[in-house]
Design a protein around this nucleic acid. Structure first.
Length: 295
DNA sequence: CGCTTTTGACCTGCGC
DNA sequence: GCGCAGGTCAAAAGCG
C-alpha cells in the first residue's frame, strides 16, 4: 500500500514543507489525487496562494492527504464527471452495510474478496496544542495506533451518530509536534450537534465544520476567486442534489473557500455554477451524503 | 446507567 | 509465504 510508505516516509508535514499548497482531497477511493505540479498550476493559475508560513501562525491548513487505495480504482478515476453520481460510489461502504450488516459488524465479518472501499478523505493541518479539535460533531474514539517513524500515536474517531459513517484520524506531525493533522473520511449525514460548551453552532459554522475545526484562530479565510469556484464545480454536475446548506455557503462564502479547493484537484473544466452551487462548489460530491436531506 | 476512552488482539493489504 | 504497518474491533475501565 503506497499509503503506508507515504504516511511513514512522507507524512503530511512534508507536504507543507515541500509544497506551497497544502490542500487536497484524498484519492483513496480513486476520486482524485494530484501531483504537486498539477496542483500548483491549478492554484497558481487561479490565484490560490496558501502561505506556508501560515502554519506557523496557527492557521488552518488544508493538506493533501496520503493516499490509500484499497478500492478498485475505476470507480472515480475513470469517470470524472460522475464522481458522485452513484450512491454506491458515494457511500460504497455504507450501502453495503445497510444492506446486510450494521456498520460495527462490517469489518471483521467482511466478505472475503470484497475490498474495503475508502471514502473520500480530506485532511488539513492545524497548529494546536490539543489533538482533538472541536468541530461541532461528536466523535467516539475507537482506536489508537502508534505510527511508524513518529513518536506520536494516531487516534481514530468515528462520528457518534449511528447513521453516520464519517471517520476522523488525528495525529501530530512528527516534524512539528505543534501541528495536528486531521483527516476526515466520509461525509456527515446529519447536522452538527453543537458544541458541548454552549450553543448550537450556526449553519455557517456547521458547514465549514464539516471538514474544518470551527476555531477562528485556526481558520484562514480566503476570498476565493471566481475561477476557483467554477473549477471546483467540475465534479458536481451530474446529479442535482438538494443542498440544504446552500445558504450556509452564501453566508460564509469566503470563509468556506478554504474548503473549496478541496475539489479543485479534478480537471478544471469550468462548468457554470450548478443549481446546488454553493456546497457543490466546495465539497466534493463524493464527500456529501445524499441521506443528509432526510435527516 | 449510558456513554466514552483505553488498549490488546485481530484483520487486511502490500512489499519483499 | 512472511513480516510489517495501518486500520478496526471489542472488552474492560473510567466518568458524569
Amino acid at each position: 500500500m503506497e499509503d503506508k510508505d507515504r504516511a511513514s516516509s512522507d507524512p503530511a508535514g512534508d507536504f507543507v514543507g515541500k509544497s506551497s499548497w497544502n490542500l487536497g482531497v484524498d484519492d483513496s477511493d480513486g476520486s482524485h489525487f494530484f501531483t504537486d505540479d498539477r496542483e500548483r498550476n491549478m492554484f497558481g493559475d487561479i490565484g490560490w496562494n496558501l502561505d506556508p508560513n501560515r502554519v506557523d501562525e496557527g492557521l488552518l491548513q488544508p493538506v493533501q492527504t496520503s493516499s490509500i487505495e484499497t478500492a478498485p480504482s475505476s470507480s472515480y478515476r475513470s469517470n470524472n464527471q460522475s464522481v458522485s453520481s452513484s450512491s454506491s460510489e458515494d457511500l460504497p461502504e455504507k450501502s453495503t452495510v445497510s444492506d446486510e450488516k450494521p456498520p460495527d459488524t462490517l469489518s471483521k465479518s467482511k466478505k472475503k474478496g470484497q475490498k474495503r472501499v475508502r471514502q473520500p478523505r480530506f485532511a488539513f493541518m492545524t497548529k494546536s496544542e490539543v489533538d482533538h479539535l472541536e468541530d461541532g460533531y461528536r466523535w467516539r474514539k475507537y482506536g489508537q495506533k502508534a505510527v511508524k517513524n513518529s513518536p506520536f500515536p494516531r487516534s481514530y474517531y468515528r462520528c457518534t451518530n449511528s447513521k453516520c459513517t464519517v471517520k476522523k484520524r488525528v495525529e501530530r506531525s512528527h516534524e512539528d509536534p505543534t501541528i495536528v493533522i486531521t483527516t476526515y473520511e466520509g461525509q456527515h449525514c446529519h447536522h452538527t450537534v453543537g458544541f458541548p460548551r454552549g450553543g448550537i453552532i450556526s449553519h455557517e459554522s456547521s458547514f465549514s465544520s464539516q471538514f474544518a475545526p470551527t476555531m477562528p484562530q485556526f481558520y484562514y479565510p480566503i476570498q476565493l476567486p471566481r475561477e476557483l469556484n467554477t473549477c471546483t464545480t467540475t465534479t458536481t454536475t451530474t446529479v442535482s442534489q438538494p443542498c440544504e446548506r446552500r445558504h450556509d455557503y452564501e453566508a460564509g462564502r469566503s470563509s468556506s473557500a478554504t474548503m473549496a479547493a478541496a475539489d479543485a484537484s479534478l480537471p478544471a473544466l469550468p462548468p457554470p455554477p450548478t443549481d446546488e452551487g454553493l456546497l457543490g462548489d466546495i465539497v466534493p460530491r463524493g464527500m456529501r451524503n445524499r441521506d443528509e436531506r432526510n435527516i
